[in-house]
């Protein structure tokens, strides 16, 4: 009975909070940042050379590597960059294309709108990759002095919150531990995640794109027409 509640009205309410919260953050970004050319503070991105369309050739790639690549995150943290990219991709792909979720959508709406559904093999593989990435993050927090120096309980809570839906989902699919309990924890953790995404450190999921695409900065993607 309360199972239906958690996956029904409560899930919808959390989803609504997620959408409204994210919209609020987007609006906040645009009200806080200014269009280029407005009065300056300490940093003037207007003095950056105008962006030209990148030309791709071996020579430009080589010069980019020597001028920027080597000192950017690609050059200084290639492993972390790979792990974090893979992790962020899998935590999106898994819930969106999981067979079990599509069966649920089928039950709820009589149809599932996604043409792509993961096979059991791919689901398991991506789950294991996700766990591997989480293990990597945990190891960094525990053993790398520079990460340990800024790690707080909050960071551990964030890691647990993001891991919970995947661990419980995996256990439920494979009938490890008690199925009912796993599904209930799974649903609660997903709802909690949706509820907190716009208002906690998870908000970087939207600010990453806003900051990197809309702001004019040497290291950002695209031209960027705004600044703080």
């Amino acid at each position: 009975m309360y199972y239906d509640y958690i996956r029904g009205p409560i899930a919808w309410a959390c989803f609504a909070v997620f959408i409204v919260g994210m919209l609020f953050q987007v609006i906040r970004f645009f009200t806080l940042s200014r269009k280029l050319g407005t009065p300056d503070n300490h940093l003037n991105p207007n003095i950056l050379p105008p962006r030209t369309k990148p030309q791709f050739s071996m020579a430009t790639l080589k010069s980019w590597w020597h001028l920027k690549g080597k000192v950017s995150i690609i050059g200084s943290h290639p492993v972390m960059l790979t792990v974090t990219t893979v992790f962020h991709l899998t935590i999106f792909i898994l819930p969106l294309f999981l067979l079990a979720h599509h069966t649920l959508f089928d039950q709820l709406w009589g149809a599932s709108f996604c043409p792509l559904v993961l096979s059991q093999f791919w689901t398991d593989l991506l789950c294991i990759v996700t766990f591997g990435c989480l293990g990597f993050f945990i190891a960094r927090r525990l053993f790398l002095p520079r990460v340990r120096a800024i790690t707080t309980l909050y960071d551990w809570a964030i890691l647990i919150m993001v891991a919970a839906p995947f661990v419980t989902g995996f256990c439920a699919i494979h009938n490890l531990l008690d199925y009912e309990t796993m599904i209930i924890i799974h649903l609660i953790s997903v709802n909690l995640l949706m509820l907190t995404l716009p208002f906690t450190k998870f908000v970087h999921m939207i600010f990453f794109f806003l900051n990197r695409f809309f702001l004019r900065s040497e290291y950002n993607f695209g031209a960027g027409s705004r600044r703080w």
Binding site: M80, V147, K201, V203, H204
Partner: peptide, 14 residues
């Protein structure tokens, strides 16, 4: 916002 968005990842270190 800056304090909240910071993921404490240390990628800015180098």
């Amino acid at each position: 916002m800056a304090l909240r968005v910071c993921a404490h990842c240390s990628l800015c270190a180098q």
